[in-house]
């Protein structure tokens, strides 16, 4: 674990990977990078399915990511109880305070540009609910979105698993996501299959 991972990343966001001289950050470029090396999960998908997958992935980045940012940085209760403490824990005082303030401003600016800043918590949760509904409709009763695991499953797992396992003072986000049993089941399936420690 490194305290400065997000500063090491070329785009300022995690995750990033290092492969030889290359440093690639964020999911899409990493997937692209792996595909260029001949490793891909969606080679057997048709062009339409690939496009559909992309659409769902961008739905997640547009809704779930913003909702997570909103709850962790703009919801006073969560910000004060969790985000502030966590974000400043790696820095000595008063740098932690400065960094947290700067980051909160940056997040607020981003959400403002996306018209998320002035939403209420209920509006945000409604957006999350809608997003989860369309995801679980697409999933249906299959094990994975396209039969076999793809990047979309990985992304859904990443977000859903984090949301349902992180304890926050604001439980509403986890509760909203948990209403979709199929998504929770997908997350548990991926966790058991790929991340279970022996």
């Amino acid at each position: 674990m490194r305290w400065n991972a997000e500063f090491m990343s070329p785009s300022g966001r995690v995750p990033f990977i290092k492969c030889g001289a290359f440093v690639v950050s964020e999911l899409e470029p990493i997937v692209q990078f792996a595909a260029n090396k001949g490793v891909t999960l969606c080679s057997r998908l048709s062009t339409e399915e690939k496009a559909e997958m992309r659409a769902y992935m961008s739905l997640i980045t547009n809704v779930l990511v913003n909702a997570e940012l909103y709850i962790s940085w703009l919801d006073e209760e969560t910000f004060n109880a969790v985000t502030k403490v966590r974000n400043s824990s790696v820095y000595p005082w008063p740098l932690g305070w400065l960094q947290t303030r700067a980051k909160r401003n940056a997040v607020a600016k981003r959400l403002k540009a996306l018209n998320w800043h002035d939403k209420t918590l209920d509006q945000v949760l409604a957006d999350v609910e809608q997003c989860c509904n369309s995801l679980s409709q697409r999933l249906g009763d299959r094990d994975y979105f396209f039969g076999t695991p793809t990047e979309l499953d990985a992304l859904v797992f990443g977000h859903v698993f984090t949301i349902i396992t992180t304890r926050l003072p604001c439980r509403k986000l986890a509760e909203t996501v948990k209403q979709n049993k199929s998504l929770v089941a997908l997350a548990q399936r991926v966790d058991e299959q790929y991340f279970k420690r022996p």
Binding site: R2, W3, N4, F7, Y91, P94, Q99
Partner: peptide, 14 residues
Amino acid sequence: STSFRVRESSGPQM
């Protein structure tokens, strides 16, 4: 193209 060894020391420090 900055070396990863250099990249590792990125970030704010007091």
